[in-house]
Design a protein around this nucleic acid. Structure first.
Lengths: 125, 125
DNA sequence: TGATTGAATGATAGATTCATCAAGTCGTCA
DNA sequence: TGACGACTTGATGAATCTATCATTCAATCA
């Protein structure tokens, strides 16, 4: 495993693919969205919000930390997480825009597939 | 496997994670970047550009198609690929911006780690 | 101090993804 | 037609990732 970007000679597309790997899990996306919305959240809140087992949550948070996507700091007995950069939220936003486009197009295609090749004559109308 | 977004009741963060999965491989990022830059590229060009084995390239192209990220069309004996949506290029761009930010911060931290806790007195200068 | 709660780490089996090779499809052209 | 070039699909072992359980660490408080 080498989710780090330490090696500056690594081609950009590898580093970029690596970033996407860090985002490639529903739980991690969910975490980042919660942090985007709330600014700062404790692990306990993340757990109750997602229903995940604590150690499982910790593992995903660890992945996000290794990818430099979130920052943690401990205050008293709790650990608070937040986005490491506002650009992380930008990335999620742009992804959502792309998905909206894809879903719309796919939906349209589906609808026209249903409507056009019908062998029956239009009923009523 | 279900890289499709057919199920509209699926929570958005799952669909989003799935999108990122489609992007989570250096070869696929590379392909998308080539398509972003050139508009339209044949499989043969992608192969010679990346040095990949044909079947391997095909598999990655298949993943990208399933994720609705690229479109293929056959003209004569060759198959041309292009981005399915300009927003795909946007996503790559935003990722690059985020990475630049991360790399800069990481680099700065590294430099200050090297400079500050030095026990030696500054040499010459 | 010892017990308790919040969180991280280690270990591991099961699931997914990747790279490679063999085989198949589709179009062109001799 | 049939042989070749351009791709795609299928199958498979190796590598990676995920979910779960057990253990450990860190801070609070009785």
């Amino acid at each position: 495993m080498q989710p780090f970007l330490s090696d500056e000679r690594r081609p950009l597309y590898e580093v970029k693919a690596n970033l996407f790997k860090g985002l490639a899990h529903p739980v991690r996306v969910r975490i980042l969205e919660l942090l985007s919305a709330a600014g700062e959240v404790t692990v306990a809140e993340l757990i109750s919000e997602t229903g995940l087992e604590a150690s499982h949550m910790s593992q995903h948070l660890s992945v996000l930390r290794q990818h430099h996507l979130v920052l943690a700091d401990r205050r008293a007995s709790q650990v608070f997480y937040r986005l490491a950069y506002p650009q992380v939220a930008d990335l999620l936003r742009v992804a959502r825009i792309l998905l909206a486009e894809i879903l719309e197009t796919t939906h349209d295609r589906l609808v026209s597939t249903i409507n056009l090749p019908s062998l029956e004559p239009e009923t009523a109308r």
